[in-house]
Amino acid sequence: MEIHEALYTTRMMRRLRPDPVPLDVQARILDAAVRAPNGGNTQRWHFVAVDDPELIHEFGELFRQGRALEYEKFRTGQGPMAVPGPGADPAAHVETMRRIKGSGDYLADHFDEVPLLLFVFAIDDLGGANIYPAIWSVLLAARAEGVGGVMTMVLNNFRDRVNELLGVPVVEGWKMSAMLTLGYPRGRWGVAANRRPVHEVSSRNHWDAPFGVEVPQPLWSPRDQTPPALAAVG
């Protein structure tokens, strides 16, 4: 797969088929992940792949409880999901959250069918600087294999129980960074169209100074489409 296709079409996939992800596919995904950049090449990461149906069921129960907590915060105007991004249309944000909740509800209701969970742990991670490149590499490598997924922080609400179920050696400093649900998606891949364009979220040399070019449409498109021309501004 060409790199730009992976970059433009890797998105959160919550509707997954129950088909197992073969071990060789899992190995290729994680082999790509451990090539990710990390500070000092310290490689302070550990990945726990979970495909035991009983464990997946346990985590599904926690996932549903965690989502209920997060959406209660949202309902009362608390938490990061409640506030739209800078410059975003509040009505559009509400609609986006409605769609996300719908697909998230599907994942919660069908969690026992998810074929693979991937828990990512790190030590002294400096706010995620050393682990998030590896997580993104997981998602990109999975996309190249036709595997979709979503990264979630919901189980941080039950960190101690997760550690107990997985036997995490917390005394050594290991801390869960995220969990990913992985599997072959029921939906189709596509370029995310609901993004504010580059020139609205970028500046040059000074905050709010023009970036210098307008990007009204995605600069990569499927092979049967012609990417748009750029227009210099400012």
Score class of each variant (00 low, 15 high):
residue 5 E to S: 09
residue 6 A to D: 00
residue 8 Y to Q: 06
residue 15 R to V: 11
residue 16 L to S: 04
residue 17 R to T: 11
residue 18 P to G: 07
residue 19 D to A: 12
residue 20 P to Q: 01
residue 22 P to S: 02
residue 28 R to M: 05
residue 28 R to V: 05
residue 29 I to T: 01
residue 37 P to D: 04
residue 37 P to A: 12
residue 38 N to D: 08
residue 43 Q to K: 14
residue 46 H to R: 15
residue 47 F to E: 07
residue 47 F to I: 07
residue 49 A to L: 15
residue 50 V to M: 09
residue 55 L to I: 08
residue 56 I to K: 15
residue 58 E to C: 03
residue 61 E to P: 00
residue 62 L to S: 07
residue 64 R to A: 08
residue 65 Q to N: 06
residue 66 G to E: 04
residue 79 G to S: 02
residue 81 M to H: 10
residue 82 A to N: 03
residue 83 V to R: 12
residue 83 V to I: 04
residue 84 P to C: 06
residue 85 G to H: 08
residue 88 A to S: 13
residue 88 A to R: 12
residue 90 P to L: 06
residue 98 R to M: 14
residue 102 G to V: 03
residue 105 D to V: 00
residue 107 L to T: 03
residue 107 L to C: 07
residue 111 F to R: 06
residue 112 D to F: 02
residue 114 V to M: 11
residue 114 V to H: 08
residue 119 F to A: 07
residue 121 F to V: 11
residue 123 I to M: 13
residue 124 D to Q: 14
residue 137 S to T: 10
residue 137 S to H: 14
residue 141 A to W: 11
residue 143 R to T: 00
residue 145 E to W: 01
residue 148 G to A: 00
residue 154 V to T: 12
residue 159 R to C: 11
residue 159 R to E: 13
residue 168 V to C: 09
residue 169 P to I: 09
residue 170 V to D: 02
residue 171 V to G: 07
residue 173 G to Q: 11
residue 174 W to V: 09
residue 177 S to V: 12
residue 178 A to F: 09
residue 178 A to K: 10
residue 181 T to P: 01
residue 183 G to W: 07
residue 184 Y to L: 02
residue 190 G to I: 01
residue 196 R to K: 13
residue 199 H to L: 03
residue 201 V to W: 02
residue 207 W to E: 05
residue 210 P to Q: 10
residue 220 W to Y: 14
residue 220 W to C: 01
residue 229 A to E: 07
residue 231 A to Y: 03
residue 231 A to I: 08
residue 234 G to E: 02
